[in-house]
Computed example of a mutant assay.
Amino acid sequence: MAYSPLEQFAIIPLIPIHVGNLYLSFTNTSLFMLPTIGLVLLLVHLVTLNGGHLVPNARQSLVEMIHDFVPNSVNEQISGVSKQQLFPLIFVTFTFSLFCNLQGMIPYSFTVTSHFIITLGLSFSLSIGITIVGFETNGLHSFSFSLPPGVPLPLAPFPVLLELISHGFRALSSGIRLFANMMAGHSSVKILSGFARTMLSMRGIMLLAQIAPLSIVFALTGSESGVAISQAHVFTISICIYSNDAINLH
């Protein structure tokens, strides 16, 4: 049992693996990623098995709702004829982040997206892939993103430098946003849960004083579940916006 609010975020090596100076151990982070990916694959497989049902059941309704949500985000944020080529990338990104966030709401589980190295790696890899797609679409003209139209030539070095810095910080900001929200929310739930447990174990105090902290914990847990869903949405929307900028430039 974790007694510190930060103890739930500790990375524990389960299978130590050292390759020279590289530390490639199998940790609890890797362990909890496996059921997340397995659950997504199993859910999609069960829904698409034999072509699905004409009248969708609960599983199929969930997958169809997620599948319909992603194209709406893609169509709203990305313009051009090549936007549907990005649908698999956006769908996998949203589904993975959503299930990782919601998995962390299960007691005694591990929130993968509460670690900055995970969210940073995810956002940086997506940014690199989006940049490659932009160069494949526009060629060397992709460099024009760093120079807004109408800028006088003598002032060109300044907006170019600012745009390059802004482009580099996009991946950083996406990773920080997801990590910070998940870590802050889970820490708050843990702190208030410990406070509620202490109040419930005390004797000689009013019943209302015991129930009130527990009610706050339940309310905060529901709010954190909403944050887990909304942060997956925000992360996906930011990837769509960056993809639109890379494909359509200015």
Results as ranks from 00 to 15, higher is better:
residue 26 F to G: 01
residue 170 R to P: 00
residue 105 M to G: 01
residue 118 I to G: 02
residue 94 F to S: 01
residue 185 G to W: 00
residue 20 G to R: 02
residue 112 V to W: 07
residue 144 S to M: 09
residue 235 F to R: 06
residue 206 M to Y: 12
residue 61 S to Q: 07
residue 132 I to A: 15
residue 247 I to N: 08
residue 178 L to D: 04
residue 82 S to A: 14
residue 158 F to L: 15
residue 213 P to S: 13
residue 134 G to L: 01
residue 91 F to T: 12
residue 249 L to V: 05
residue 12 I to T: 12
residue 97 S to H: 13
residue 94 F to K: 01
residue 163 E to G: 10
residue 159 P to I: 00
residue 233 H to D: 09
residue 147 L to E: 02
residue 245 D to E: 14
residue 7 E to K: 11
residue 223 S to G: 15
residue 137 T to C: 08
residue 107 P to Y: 00
residue 73 S to L: 14
residue 161 L to C: 06
residue 228 A to Q: 09
residue 89 L to H: 10
residue 117 I to L: 15
residue 180 A to E: 09
residue 72 N to W: 12
residue 133 V to D: 09
residue 225 S to W: 10
residue 56 P to V: 05
residue 222 G to W: 04
residue 214 L to H: 11
residue 179 F to I: 01
residue 107 P to N: 02
residue 186 H to F: 08
residue 227 V to L: 03
residue 84 Q to E: 15
residue 188 S to F: 12
residue 25 S to R: 03
residue 12 I to C: 00
residue 141 H to K: 14
residue 108 Y to T: 09
residue 143 F to S: 06
residue 45 H to P: 01
residue 126 L to T: 05
residue 24 L to T: 08
residue 124 F to H: 05
residue 149 P to W: 03
residue 17 I to W: 05
residue 73 S to F: 08
residue 197 R to S: 14
residue 81 V to Q: 10
residue 218 F to C: 07
residue 179 F to E: 08
residue 149 P to D: 14
residue 211 I to D: 03
residue 137 T to W: 11
residue 186 H to S: 10
residue 166 S to F: 07
residue 112 V to I: 14
residue 178 L to P: 00
residue 206 M to I: 06
residue 128 I to M: 15
residue 182 M to N: 13
residue 122 L to W: 10
residue 119 T to H: 08
residue 213 P to E: 14
residue 195 F to Q: 11
residue 221 T to A: 06
residue 148 P to G: 06
